[in-house]
Write a protein that binds this DNA or RNA. Structure first.
Length: 428
RNA sequence: GCUGGGGUGGCCGAACCUGGUAAAGGCGCCAGCCUGCUAAGCUGGUGGGGCUCUGCCCCGUGCGGGUUCAAAUCCCGCCCCCAGCGCCA
């Protein structure tokens, strides 16, 4: 949620920042917010005056009653004031709600280092790690390789649940688990707190964690319950401290979350959707940090280093892009994507590292205090970054480590999590 | 799911029965005074918001509604916590 105080204090600064997103509707929303805020304060002032009047009358009545004096006239007057208040309160509520909705739709302030651009084609490659593997044969897609090996069954996944569902079998299922354990162990070594969150959230928590569009297009709802399946561990971890005030001495709070992720993927038309790349359900290890405002930019880089280290240890070739102003999304002030190399020569997103500054925390009402016993100082900053999404990491491993005979070598760091298995081989 | 008890500032708690406009009291925290320093002690402050901003006012007792001039207090619905019972992977 956007900070109304920033709009009041410096609307032009906000306007210039929003312009960078090249989306005229945001500027309209800003104007709307300014207008609604003006109206809201006007009504609020009037209503407060009336409430003061009512309170005075009430106290007057109480005093008279104590003295055994008649109060009918005053009570009649108070009744009238109460009616007026009710009318104004309806109005106040309406304006306040609309203002809040508008503030929810205005995206976060972008960091100055975010490159200017229109869409994903304008993302700036800031780093390339490793080199594309060289094959002296025609490399295959993970779908072909894994289906041939008898480790992946997409057809039966479709039969029982629909397209973009799948069965992982034998060593491939083991590989999924191995990747999870690998990422968890690496992050735990760095002091990240392992957490397995609820896999469902109620609406209030969910709307705090994501924007409306994401909610609409991605989130599965449980019928007849106020419950929604999580699309990533980021969301339940973010919501964990909803309406709380954290102690600065406990910050930064660093989490490594483990969970399945469920996504409707409505509106994925035109995007790359093959095989395991864009599925309705996958497992992911997620990094999440709550911190003080002044430390979030350093921690954003730390999260980035963590992820890069994981891919490096897996021996994967990837690149890092600084996501441009037109592609970044509403919550993040800055975002890096890690894109892995795939067998068709393209780089595709495997993970995403966002500093949401105070935007998500304001929606979820997560504040911090300098010391126990002190009043709240302000909102925390929240950051989230993929550690490993197993499905996409498996694609990278399979396509980059494939052998001419159709088998797949398994990265050395995973052997111990694979019971010593070093290769994916044909299974029946 | 059932029965009973409960939910009030950062924490503990008072006011609830008997409606009169909450936070008394204590702890913590901040500032000042005092002190060689610290502690103790003393004084003031310590949730959110609005305005005509040395000040004035409003909101705030788990959430939502109702009754009333007036609700922490009475009534209804919901959520959560505790205890016991039931069911159960």
């Amino acid at each position: 949620m956007f900070d109304i105080n920033l709009i009041r204090k410096n609307p032009e600064l906000v306007r210039e920042n929003l312009k960078r997103r090249q989306e005229p509707k945001y500027l309209e929303l800003l104007d709307r917010a300014i207008e609604l805020d003006r109206k809201w304060r006007e009504i609020k002032t009037k209503a407060n005056e009336l409430r003061a009047k009512r309170n005075k009358l009430s106290q007057e009545i109480a005093k008279l009653k104590k003295q055994g004096m008649p109060t009918e006239t005053l009570m009649e007057e108070a009744r009238k004031v109460a009616q007026e208040i009710e009318k104004l309160e309806d109005e106040e509520r309406k304006v306040e709600e609309e203002l809040k909705t508008v503030l929810m739709k205005i995206p976060n302030m972008l960091h100055e280092s975010v490159p200017y651009g229109k869409d994903e084609n304008d993302n700036v490659v800031v780093k390339v790690v490793g080199k594309p593997p060289k094959f002296n044969f025609q490399p295959k897609s993970h779908i072909e390789i894994l289906t041939n090996l008898g480790l992946l069954d997409l057809e039966r996944g479709s039969k029982v649940a629909g397209s973009r569902f799948y069965y992982l079998k034998h060593e491939l299922a083991l590989l999924d688990l191995a990747l999870q354990r690998f990422a968890i162990d690496e992050l735990r070594k760095k002091g990240y707190i392992l957490v397995e969150p609820p896999f469902m959230l109620n609406k209030r928590a969910y709307m705090g964690a994501v924007d409306f569009e994401f909610f609409q297009d991605q989130i599965y709802k449980i019928e007849n319950e106020d419950l929604y399946m999580i699309a990533t561990a980021e969301h339940p971890i973010a919501a964990m401290f909803m309406d709380e005030v954290l102690n600065a001495e406990d910050l930064p709070l660093k989490f490594v979350g483990v969970s399945p992720c469920f996504r409707k993927e409505v509106g994925a038309h035109g995007k790359y959707t093959k095989g395991l790349f864009r599925v309705h359900h996958f497992n992911k290890i997620e990094q999440f940090i709550f911190c003080k405002p002044e430390e979030s930019w350093d921690l954003h880089e730390e999260l980035q280093r963590n992820s890069e280290e994981l891919y490096k240890k897996l021996g994967l070739h990837f690149r890092v892009v600084n996501v441009c102003t037109g592609d970044i999304g509403e919550f993040a002030a800055k975002k890096y994507d890690i894109e892995v190399w795939m067998a068709d020569g393209k780089y595709r997103e495997a993970g995403s590292n966002s500093n949401c500054t105070d935007y998500q925390a304001r929606r979820l009402n997560i504040r911090y205090r300098e010391k126990p016993g002190m009043p709240p100082k302000g909102f925390v900053h929240t950051l989230n970054n993929t550690a490993l999404a197993t499905s996409r990491t498996m694609i990278a491993i399979v396509e980059q480590y494939q052998q001419e005979d159709g088998t797949v070598k398994i990265p050395r760091v995973l052997w111990k999590y694979m019971n010593g298995i070093k290769k994916l081989e044909p299974r029946k």
